[in-house]
């Protein structure tokens, strides 16, 4: 955001583009859906807990309702029985919405190449950021979230508002 107020004196005026203001708001208070599947969910909880503290990125508020969230972190393996549920949750989220596939299982099914699991959650929903690791460390998840923020900052209103 262009900090021009310091140059012009304290006029209480900030100039910026609409793109940047909107994207700043979106990245600054992104509410994830409280949705843990397996082992990665425990690392996701670690990320939110005291040691790593995801609230530094405005993400301390996990919503249990898909209507109130804009990010779904698929944390864990997705079974064939779970896939329709995930699709429905994704459909229920209001746009704009983003997806992070956390861990190898969500990205490509990892070590389980078998009958029970969907071979990557991208068979069901579109994914924005894939995070490798089994399970990824909290630092990796934070890196993934920052990568997503970067992606969002590149969005242009003209591209999605038509």
């Amino acid at each position: 955001m262009g900090i021009v107020s310091s140059k012009l004196g304290n006029l209480g005026v900030v100039t910026t583009t609409l793109d940047e203001a909107v994207n700043w708001a979106r990245t600054g208070a992104m509410w994830p859906l409280l949705f843990g599947l397996a082992c990665c969910a425990i690392e996701m909880m670690s990320t939110q807990a005291s040691h790593y503290d995801m609230s530094r990125f405005g993400m301390e508020l996990n919503r249990a309702s898909p209507r109130q969230s804009d990010l779904i972190i698929i944390a864990g393996r997705v079974s064939r029985k779970m896939a329709p549920v995930i699709r429905q949750l994704y459909d229920q989220m209001a746009s704009p919405k983003w997806v992070i596939a956390m861990g190898d299982c969500a990205s490509c099914s990892g070590v389980y190449n078998n009958y029970a699991l969907v071979q990557g959650v991208d068979e069901v929903i579109p994914v924005d950021v894939y995070i490798a690791g089994c399970p990824p460390r909290p630092e990796q998840l934070i890196h993934g979230i920052l990568t997503l923020h970067e992606k969002i900052r590149g969005d242009r209103i003209a591209e999605w508002a038509t």
């Binding site: 599947l37 397996a38 864990g76 393996r77 079974s79 029985k81 779970m82 549920v85 070590v111 389980y112 190449n113 078998n114 009958y115 029970a116 699991l117």
Partner: peptide
């Protein structure tokens, strides 16, 4: 909902 087929694998 988390059946992973570990025993079979």
């Amino acid at each position: 909902y988390l059946h992973t087929g570990i025993e079979k694998t």
